[in-house]
Amino acid sequence: MPLLDIQDLHLEFGTGADAVRAVDGLSLTIAEGETLGLVGESGCGKSVTALSITRLVPAPPARYTSGRILLDGKDVLKMEQSKLRHIRGKMVSYIFQEPGSSLNPVFRVGSQIKESLQLHRPEMATDSEVIRLLKLVGIPAPELRIKDYPHQMSGGMQQRIMIAMALASEPRLLVADEPTTALDVTIQAQILDLLRDLKQRLRMSILLITHNLGIVGDIADRVAVMYAGQVVELAPARDLLQRPLHPYTQALMNSVPKLGREAGRLQSIPGTVPAVGAFPSGCRFHPRCPKAQPDCSKKVPELIEVEPSRFVRCPYWSHGKL
């Protein structure tokens, strides 16, 4: 049984005629100890999916119209509030994009970490445990830092605090929602190294959400690519990066600069990401797709397994040239 099993998730915002569908028939699994990369442009529904795992999307306005989210076999969408609180932070922890605004500015970082300990491991809610966690995430002189306020730290340090806070409860699944987007490139690499290291040492599952294909190859076992509320391609990380099958994935790859290649022109994807609620008919990518056929605008393609453990939502998939 996988640790996380999302089945056919449908999520809408608003009601009646104004309702817009943000997530449409999404299915994903994460096994114990596995790292899944979830890739897509902003507004494709990946963050809402991540928050949905512990039902953190404010509802209303959000509404789950169908589907299940099984965590360790139990459906999160049917859980009572009190049970949810035991899942949040305990089984699933989060790291967010902006560490600066995700840490509460008026409390010391030590006490924010300790708060997590008190909730989930009250017997360990001590300064020494906080210091151990800070050491674990590589913060120098942790004894001095626990008295700091978030604004006294750099962005990279703040993100390490967030990670320490997430690890405090020894979660089985760590959801990292764009953990490096707001950081400098050198700091990005450090944080990714830290995550990879922690993954091996603590043997937890990670859901890594990013819009940057470059960083998933480093750390993910499998990758799911999302477009306009749907998964369009799902494959082992190495395969997907070497041989993307869906035209959207191919286009994404072509827009990323690569080292050690002839410096050709980077290709951008024409058009813009459709706004939530204004998804095109048929295949959602067809208005921007270089390989679009006439019937793409009519028929909604299915996610099909084209090779062992490789899924693509496009009947005209091909081994793209890179």
Binding site: T272, V273, P274, A278, P287
Partner: peptide
């Protein structure tokens, strides 16, 4: 990121 709407390219905008 790509929030700017380009009406010439996107029939839905």
């Amino acid at each position: 990121m790509n929030e700017a709407i380009d009406p010439t390219n996107n029939p839905n905008a």
